[in-house]
């Protein structure tokens, strides 16, 4: 997946689409930005200057789908986090989750969320639930899985047609919902795919590359300042804020 930050307007359509697709319950009373279930969120990063000089960039942030040695898969004591060798997608299995939150501690992208409350939908709203995605219970972790329900549906369809799963058989909800087509999704291993082409462009980068987690979500921006501000570590940004 490649996200073009220059195209992102911060509209939040992806966030809504994600929540609707994946049966994320409405926030419980008392939820804070740090206790909500936000598989996908859009973070506004600005350069620390005050208005009107400030420059901002919107960063859609979700599970970065790290490569083989993901920080979260190896730490789960009971195999509730799985790495799918075929697709490279990291999946949370909530029914197996104990709720120890070790994976959340391990994730440098803070892309994992805990069900602090019982999921509740206002009367009638449960009619709108997506039948392809199971709801989760209180006390377990969950996160973006590149719309596992859609992947399963695509697999079933491919199997019915007796053909292997093709990379463009499905698109996650956020990709579909983005009005500016800022998110490109596909098979990074296929050199002919659009996503590969986007990923190999020199203005593409990954978050916290130095950690060696090998995220499969890439960001791109033609602005060197944006690239710089999102790839340097927190030290310098803190320094800048102090000096700025």
């Amino acid at each position: 997946m490649v996200i073009d930050l220059d195209r992102c307007t911060g509209c939040g359509a992806c966030v809504i689409a994600c929540a609707v697709e994946n049966n994320v319950p409405p926030a419980h009373e008392g939820t804070t930005p740090r206790t909500g279930l936000t598989w996908m969120r859009v973070v506004r990063v600005d350069d620390g200057r005050s208005f009107p000089d400030t420059r901002s960039v919107f960063v859609p942030l979700m599970c970065q789908q790290c490569d083989h040695h993901t920080p979260c898969v190896s730490v789960c004591p009971q195999n509730a986090v799985e790495y799918d060798e075929e697709t490279g997608i990291v999946t949370q299995v909530p029914v197996r989750c104990l709720g120890c939150r070790y994976c959340m501690t391990a994730c440098p992208y803070h892309a994992r969320y805990f069900n602090w409350w019982d999921p509740e939908w206002p009367a009638g709203m449960e009619q709108t639930l997506n039948p392809d995605v199971s709801t989760r219970m209180r006390g377990v972790a969950e996160k973006c899985n590149f719309c596992h329900g859609r992947l399963q549906a695509a697999r079933a369809k491919a199997a019915a047609g007796s053909r292997p799963l093709a990379p463009d058989d499905y698109q996650p909800a956020c990709v579909e919902a983005c009005p500016t087509e800022a998110i490109v999704f596909g098979d990074l291993n296929d050199p002919r795919s659009t996503v590969s082409a986007a990923a190999s462009s020199p203005d593409t980068f990954r978050l916290l590359e130095h950690l060696g987690t090998g995220p499969k979500v890439r960001y791109r921006s033609r602005s060197a300042a944006v690239r710089e501000s999102l790839t340097r570590n927190s030290v310098s940004s803190e320094k800048e804020q102090v000096h700025g």
Partner: peptide
């Protein structure tokens, strides 16, 4: 009390991920 689903504590024994430090601790 700390874990979200205490009744699933036995899962760690039943489906252990031996690469996790927490499994060893448990």
């Amino acid at each position: 009390v700390d874990v979200g689903q205490p009744l699933r504590a036995w899962f760690t024994f039943w489906h252990p991920n031996v690469h996790s430090m927490l499994t060893e601790v448990t």
